[in-house]
């Protein structure tokens, strides 16, 4: 088996595990998987910027959180809003926000881009954090899940965890294939060219500024899609969703999984979330004097991030690639 074949085999297995999720998972884990798939979409959208275009955005959580607030605003307390209405409104809102922030940001590059996206995202954070009409620092409840259906006919009941799971699962697959299609199109070749060498791409006659802006809008809108799913499934949105720590975490997910592969970002989301979920259990296995660590996930997470950056900078996918390479060689030897 070649390396690609092994990778494909792993991916198909992963999708199969996800597809069968609700059949074997307890409710708690079904909900955790929903959360992980949502984070996976969020991380993939950032991978499009970081891994393929070379734009390191440190403000990606702005769109994720904005989407939640938009959903909360278009959902009245008394009745559900049809998803055919709320989703386009949310996505359009995020696209417009991404267009405005992107218009300023893509004029710069490198470190400026990092700082500017961070500063703009914080501007959003402060706006929502201090706006008492939108719940201030407490955030807002979304009392009704989006209605998937027409009038009285309900196609999917999102109060049902399994239905919600498959909606998010479908969203994950759709996002992946949409991004794949974009990346395989001539447009995708140009943005990869920007990452490899922007001057040369420009010299070939491409207006790289416009390409970067469009990528930024696509990524922002997809982050909004993830934010929509997150808010719809949790029923709450808070300023924490747009805090820059959240932007930091999602960069972490992309690096942890392995950037520039899309599925790596999803792996990253699963690895970090499962680690966090198992953290308390892991502390119990440690010696007694470390039991105080249970409340200090952030400390552990910080050390973990530093170790990943220093030791596995190319992420989990690079480890998988190495393993499958070794396996492939063994096969060849036979």
């Amino acid at each position: 088996m070649t390396q690609e074949k092994i990778m494909r085999f792993i991916l198909i297995g992963f999708v199969a595990i996800l597809a069968a999720g609700p059949l074997y998972l307890e409710t708690y884990y079904t909900e955790l998987f929903i959360h992980m798939m949502v984070l996976g979409i969020f991380a993939m959208s950032l991978d499009l910027l970081i891994g393929y275009t070379g734009l390191v955005s440190f403000g990606h959580a702005a769109f994720f959180g904005l989407a939640g607030y938009l959903l909360a605003i278009v959902t009245p307390e008394t009745e559900p809003t049809a998803i055919w209405i709320s989703l386009p409104v949310v996505l359009a809102g995020c696209a417009i926000a991404a267009a405005v922030i992107g218009w300023f940001s893509v004029r710069t590059s490198g470190i400026y881009f990092i700082m500017i996206t961070l500063a703009f995202a914080q501007m959003f954070f402060y706006y929502f954090n201090e706006n008492n009409d939108l719940g201030g620092s407490d955030g807002m409840f979304i009392s009704n899940k989006p209605l998937v259906g027409w009038g009285d006919f309900q196609f999917l009941d999102l109060e049902n965890t399994t239905s919600l799971y498959y909606l998010v699962f479908a969203g994950l697959l759709a996002s992946y294939f949409l991004l794949r299609t974009i990346l395989n199109a001539p447009f995708g070749q140009v943005i990869k060219g920007i990452k490899a060498n922007e001057h040369r791409t420009k010299a070939l006659g491409y207006n790289t500024q416009n390409y970067k802006l469009v990528v930024f809008i696509i990524a922002g809108t997809m982050a909004g899609f993830a934010g929509f799913l997150e808010a719809a499934s949790s029923g709450i949105v808070s300023p924490g969703n747009l805090h820059w720590h959240h932007s930091g975490i999602v960069i972490m997910l992309v690096i942890l999984g392995g950037m520039g592969t899309l599925y790596g970002a999803v792996f990253g989301a699963f690895i970090l979330t499962l680690l966090q979920d198992k953290y308390t259990g892991m502390v119990e296995l440690m010696p007694d004097f470390m039991s105080g660590m249970a409340d200090h996930w952030h400390l552990f997470q910080g050390i973990f991030i530093i170790l990943v950056v220093l030791l596995v900078p190319n992420g989990a996918v690079s480890l998988l690639a190495k393993i499958s390479q070794a396996l492939g060689k063994k096969e060849d030897a036979k």
Partner: peptide, 28 residues
């Protein structure tokens, strides 16, 4: 000192990890 030849991305992430550690130590 291990990051001079690396991408800004790695520097950002490593120093972000430092923040998490320092913030938690401050709380402790």
């Amino acid at each position: 000192s291990y990051l001079y030849d690396r991408d800004h991305l790695h520097q950002v992430l490593l120093t972000y990890g430092l923040i998490l550690i320092i913030d938690d130590l401050q709380k402790i």
